[in-house]
Write a protein that binds this DNA or RNA. Structure first.
Length: 290
DNA sequence: CAGAAGGCAAAGCATCCGTA
DNA sequence: TACGGATGCTTTGCCTTCTG
């Protein structure tokens, strides 16, 4: 199993200008950001409401005006907090945007980040001066990166360099422990297996065989990385897929349950209600015509 | 020696089945 | 589709073993 295949396939920007900006809105009870990873770096800035973002092995609750930085290759996901929905803007950019050639920026900043021998702060709030500055620059960059005129392209790149300079001024020295990297890679392998096989029965034993861990140890490692137990995560993922099918198709509820790996309809109903707050039929009525 | 991983047992919870 | 009960799988805590 190749963990690389869990990687998000979406292309962010283009080779000459590897940056993309996304503005997302999440309705109450919806998913902010499904679990994934990519080789680009990313900033996520909450613009309305509250959400919990899981980045690598950490979990960060953000309110309006707070952000997280996602390192290259790091698993990340998001869930809304509270009954109100939330909005966020994300900037995804390739390391190539920071430097155009083999210069000191490449040697002192980009390479250590890509080789994971240095790590930058993840949660960014306005509480500290540097954080407030990053949030301010991020806001400006979100405005300037929408178009590709000469002045806006320059402004975006300049702002990005200033933001990275602020983060490096707070950088956590020291190499990321190899054990932590290994754990993350193993969990990526398990996640890929779950995403590929959620329509069938998935046993803990299967995931343990893939990752060469004992069942007990796998549960502990999975929870430490994902904040959920393996079965919790599988059910959450299946429920999200089922919600999409209920919304986008007129398949019967029993068929949706079967298509998303639930062999038992009553169990499907109870899991769905736990995660979504309503039964599948109530969910469909609520989204009909929406 | 410290941290990571495995083994084991108990408790909790997921899953299935029958029924309304 | 929902509910209740039975069964067995999953999770967790604690201790031991392994590895660098």
């Amino acid at each position: 199993m190749n963990p690389m295949s869990l990687k998000e396939n979406r292309v962010h920007g283009r080779p000459m200008y590897p940056i993309s900006v996304y503005h997302m809105e999440c309705a109450p009870g919806g998913t902010v950001l499904e679990c994934h990873w990519h080789s680009e770096f990313e900033f996520i800035l909450v613009t309305k409401g509250r959400a919990v973002f899981q980045v690598g092995t950490g979990s960060f609750e953000l309110t309006e005006g707070e952000a997280v930085f996602v390192h290259s290759g790091e698993i990340h996901a998001g869930d809304p907090v509270g009954e109100a929905g939330c909005s966020y803007s994300a900037v995804v950019f390739g390391a190539e945007l920071l430097t155009g050639s083999m210069d000191l920026v490449q040697e002192k900043c980009v390479d250590p980040l890509l080789q994971r021998v240095c790590r930058l702060p993840v949660k960014i709030t306005g509480a500290a001066e540097w954080g407030a500055e990053v949030i301010r620059l991020l806001g400006r960059m979100l405005e300037s990166s929408a178009e590709e005129t000469a002045s806006q392209v320059l402004a975006t790149k300049g702002l990005l360099l200033l933001i990275m300079a602020q983060l490096f001024s707070q950088g956590e020295a020291g190499e990321v422990p190899k054990a932590a990297l290994w754990k993350t890679e193993q969990i990526k392998t398990a996640l890929h297996y779950i995403h590929e096989h959620y329509q069938r029965t998935i046993r803990l034993k299967d995931l343990c065989l893939l990752t060469n861990m004992s069942e007990g140890h796998f549960c502990r490692v999975f929870r430490s990385v994902m904040q959920y137990s393996p079965i919790d995560y599988i059910n959450k993922y299946r429920t999200q897929q089922a919600a999409k099918l209920l919304e986008r198709t007129d398949k019967k509820i029993a068929a949706v349950a079967m298509d998303t790996g639930f062999e038992n309809i009553s169990y499907f109903t109870s899991v769905f209600k736990t995660h979504m707050g309503v039964t599948p039929s109530q969910f469909r009525k609520g989204t009909a015509g929406a």
